[in-house]
Design a protein around this nucleic acid. Sequence first.
DNA 1: TTGTACGCGTTATCAC
DNA 2: GTGATAACGCGTACAA
Lengths: 337, 337
Amino acid sequence: MTPPPRQRATVHDVVARAGVSRGTVSRFLNGTGYVSADAAARIEAAIEAVGYVRNNAARNLVTQRSMAVGFVVHEPHQLFLGDPNIGSIMLGTNDALADAGYQLVVLVVASDSDAERVSTYLRGGFVDGVVLVSARTHDAVAEAVEKIALPAAVIGQPEGGGSLPHVAIDNHAAAREITERLVATGRRRVGMLASALDRDSGADRLAGFTEALGERFDESLVVTDPLYSYTSGVRGMAELLRRDPSVDGVFAASDAVAAGAIETLRAHGRRIPEDVGIVGFDDSDWAQRCTPKLSTVAQPAHDIGHAAARLVLDQLRSPEAAANVTLPTTVVWRASA
Amino acid sequence: MTPPPRQRATVHDVVARAGVSRGTVSRFLNGTGYVSADAAARIEAAIEAVGYVRNNAARNLVTQRSMAVGFVVHEPHQLFLGDPNIGSIMLGTNDALADAGYQLVVLVVASDSDAERVSTYLRGGFVDGVVLVSARTHDAVAEAVEKIALPAAVIGQPEGGGSLPHVAIDNHAAAREITERLVATGRRRVGMLASALDRDSGADRLAGFTEALGERFDESLVVTDPLYSYTSGVRGMAELLRRDPSVDGVFAASDAVAAGAIETLRAHGRRIPEDVGIVGFDDSDWAQRCTPKLSTVAQPAHDIGHAAARLVLDQLRSPEAAANVTLPTTVVWRASA
DNA sequence: TTGTACGCGTTATCAC
DNA sequence: GTGATAACGCGTACAA
C-alpha cells in the first residue's frame, strides 16, 4: 500500500523510471504506434509506479483544442431553477457532445460579475465552442463570444438577431395550432394569459394566438405578465375573470401559468373542462400534475439541446457551417380542454 | 471598423507592436507594477489594435492553478431534473466561489462513459478542486478524486464513508422533529411514505420518524419506494390506506411524495388537515403549490452549497483543513397538518 | 524600470 | 522504432 503521491507525477518521472525518451512515452500515451513491446511494458509499469496521469491542460496548449464545449445558462428571472425544459436541453447537449468525445462544462451566470468572469473563461482557451441558453438582448456573454469568434449556438433566438446561429422552436406556429384546437372544441370567448412579451418566445406565442383567433380576437381578453410563473397564472386568471366572467377558453403561455389559472378557476367555482377549457405550453411536469391533466404543446427539449451541440460541433469541423435550426413541436391533447 | 482577427493574437504580437519586451507586457497585464507610463500607454494601444486576450490555459500551466472549481452532479434517478434543491445548492456554491474569484464549472454525469470522461477532466488540471453532489456509494468519480488527492467536498454524506469531507443536514433530527410536531396535533395512527432507503437521506428520515414515534411505531404503517417522486406518493398513499384506512397522520419523505399523497387522499374523500394531517420534507415549490399548503422541513440549500465551496477553498489554502459540516434545518408549519 | 532566459507539461517533427 | 529538439503562450527570477 503506497500512499498516493502528493506531488503530481509528470512524463519526466515516467521517462526516468522507464529509461526511454519523452517522445516514446508520448507515442505510447496517444496510441500513435511505433513503440516496441518491450518499451511499452516498461512504460506501463513506470506509469503505474509513479501514479502518472496526463495533464490535459498542457496537452491542449500544444494541440490547440480543449475537447470541451461550454453551456452558459443565465439564472436571473428564475430561468434556471424554474424552467423544467432546461434540464432536458442540457442533457441533450451532453449526449451529442459525449458522442463526439467532448466534455460539457456548464457555466452559470447569476450576476454581472459572473458574466464578466464567464466571458473571461470562454476567452481563456478552456472551451472550443459554446452553447448559449436564452441569451437576452444585449447579453454581455454573447457579445464577448461574438468578439472572439468562438464557435457558438444560441438556444431560443435572440431578438436583436445577433449574428450567432440559433436553434429554436416555432412558438408562433405552435401557439396558433393549439389555439385553433381549443377553438375547435366550441369555445366562444377565448382569452390568453401572456407572459414574457420582452422575450421572443412570449411575443411569438401571443402573435400565434392572435392569428388563430382572427376576427374573433379581442384585445381585452389578453392579460400580460412579465413571468412564466404559477403566481402570474393565479393573478392573471383572476384579472381575466374580472374583465369578462363569460370566458370559456384560455391559452396560458406556459404550463406553470396554466396551473395557476386552474387554481383560480377552481376557487371561482368553474369546472374544467365543462365550463372553461384551458391549454398550456411546454408539456412540463405541471401538465401531468394538474387536475384535470393539461392539454399543451410539447417542446422537443432534448432534441433542442442536441441540435445546439451539433451546430457547435459542425462549426468546429468547418468554420462556415452555421445554419439556424427550427424544431417542430407537437400538441399533446389531454383532459383540460 | 476592423474585422475581428481570425487568428488569436498572442503576447508576441503585442510585443512587436508596442516595441517593448515580453516581460514588460506581462507585468502590465498582471499589474505587478514596474512599468513606465509611456510603456503602459504603448502596450494598451497595441493590445487594443491587435485584439489581444490572454490565454488563461497557458497561464495556468505556469501558475499551476486554474482558479476554477468543479461541481459534479449525477443525473440518474432524476436526481438533477427532479430535485428542486440542487439548483439552489449550485447557486450557493457559485456565490462562494465567485467571492473568492473562482469560476464554477458544472459537470454532468449521465452515463458510465460520462463518469469516465469527467474523471479525466478532473484529473486534467482544469480545476483546483471539486464539489461532488450526492455521490452514491462506490462512485467512480469520487474514487478518481480521492486517488489524485484533489481538494473536494461532497454534499450529502456518502454511506461508504469515503475519506472525503462532506456537508450535510441532519436528516435524522429533522425527521424526528417534524414527526413529533405532527403527533402533537393529536394524530393517533401515523404512517410514513419512505423513499430512497438506499441513500443516507432516505434511511435517516425513516430512522428519525421511528424514533419520534417510539412505542407507537407500527412497522406496517411504513410504505417504501425507491424514488422521491410524485408518483411514488400517489401509489404509496393508496397502499397505506389499503393497509389501514384509519391513518390520520402521514410523514412523506419529500414534498413531491407528499403532493402525490394529497392527490390520493383527496381522491379517497379525505379532508386535509381535518381527516388526515400530512407533512413533507424539502420546502420546495411543491410545498407552496399544494392545497392546503404543506407543513415541511426547510433545507438551507443555498447555505449547503456555500459551505461545500468554503470547504474546498479552505483546503486550497491549507491542505489539512477538512472538517465535516452539518447544517441546521427548520420546520415550516403551514396548513396541511 | 526594462529585457533576457528559462520553465510549466505536452505534442510534433525530424534526423538517426 | 527511437530520441533529441522545437514549439504552445505565458510568468518570473535575474541581470542589466
